Amino acid sequence: MLGVRVLVAPDTFGSILTAREVAATVAAGWRDVAPADALDECPLADGGPGFVDTLHAALGGRLLPVTVPGPLGEPTPATLLLVDEPAGRTAYVESAQAVGLPLVPEDRRDPGRTTTRGVGALLVAARDAGARRVVVGLGGSSTNDAGAGMLVGAGLEVPAGLLDAGGGALGAVTAADLVGLRDLRARWRDVELVAATDVDVPLLGLTGASAGFAPQKGASPEQAQELERCLGSFAHAATTALADELRPDLLAGSRPTSAATRLTAAAGAGAAGGLGFGLALLGARVVPGGPFVADRVRLDERLAAADVVVTGEGRFDWQSLHGKVATEVAARALRHGIPTVVLAGEVQVGRRELSAAGITAAYAVGETPEEVRAALADPVATLRARAARVARTWSR
């Protein structure tokens, strides 16, 4: 009898397991109880951790090691993926390698101080390596500086410490301090910049960089509010400094605040602590990372050959519904008429939200505090065991 055709297409489980490790572990657990099923392992990424590794597996290319400033300024190793394409060389870089949350010890986490300067250094290294197009994966950051530090790392000339001291210092920045932004954009005009974001949130507001994400990076509620104010002030100063350099919004009329509103409210502007907004200031095109990666790993073609798809991530919560891997997989699976099963370390989304996202079922590796502790202590064994139980439900 023919077995079930299963596509295993997960993201990373935070910093615990890579997407490739998750896919292999889920496939192994599934085979434990359904050896006749055909499994296709398809690790994914959405712009956050694993972005370079996933694209390297799909596209090939050459990995170039570099060293850049980390979120607290210390030298940090990172990797560029260089792919020679018909239109020229493309460099793929992963912002999490320069500013990822695991790079900051828990007792030093402070999104008011961490900086994205290292991401600017990655851009410079990519250009120096001959890239005419640079795709930056955004996600998993320890930062909340709206990309201000990145602008310094990319070559913006400002007084020392003005923009690369973290988001907490941005409230005092004025448009006069940012007069060099025009020249910086001009110097990067010959390089196509693309920001592939892991979430579709705006820079400001209740789901923005500060209110939605700063707490998980170490901010208190009061600090998150102050960061919101600082990022709003910086956004106004930066868009005022660029003025007519920004593309006009024909629907917004001639209102002087329309450029700032358009850039801060754009989907993905709040990704990686507002790094999406900062890259847009530099002239980048901001795109959702999930679809970007899915297209390059031929996800639709692989879904068409499957009976069910299993996806997942470390924690499936409200953020997962804003542009993460699982929702992208579910949307595409729905078009192919196959069910989507989510397997995650923790599931914090209700059935109504799952159904609205096109997800058929979701299973947690750890459903009780004891199971969560066990999963953290031995993630491979517990994930494999959970995958085996899921297979008993979904295999013939």
Rank of each mutant, 00 (worst) to 15 (best):
L7I: 13
E21C: 08
G29F: 04
G29E: 06
D32G: 06
A38H: 11
L39S: 13
D46Y: 02
D46S: 08
P49C: 10
T67L: 13
P75K: 08
T79L: 11
D84F: 09
D84N: 09
P86L: 12
A87M: 11
E94N: 04
P105C: 10
D107I: 07
R108D: 11
D110C: 09
D110R: 12
R113F: 11
T114N: 07
G120H: 02
L122A: 04
L123P: 00
V124T: 15
V136C: 10
V136W: 03
G137V: 02
G140Y: 00
T143M: 03
M150G: 00
A154F: 06
L156P: 00
V158I: 07
G161C: 05
D164P: 07
G166H: 00
G168T: 03
L170M: 10
A175R: 09
A186I: 01
A186N: 01
R189S: 14
R189C: 09
V191H: 02
L193Y: 01
D200W: 07
P202N: 12
T207N: 15
S210I: 13
S210L: 15
F213I: 11
G218A: 11
Q223G: 11
Q225L: 15
E226L: 14
E226G: 10
G232N: 05
L242F: 08
A243Q: 07
L251A: 13
A252L: 12
L263S: 06
A266E: 09
A266N: 10
G268R: 01
A269S: 06
L275G: 03
A280H: 06
V286D: 00
V293M: 13
V297S: 10
E301S: 14
A305F: 08
D307Y: 06
D307G: 11
V310H: 06
G314N: 08
R315V: 10
H322Y: 08
V325F: 08
E328L: 04
V329M: 11
V329F: 08
A330T: 02
A331D: 12
V347M: 03
Q348R: 15
G350R: 15
L354E: 02
T360Y: 15
A361D: 07
Y363S: 07
A364V: 03
D378I: 03
T382Y: 01
T382P: 00
L383I: 08
A385T: 07
V390Q: 00
R392N: 10
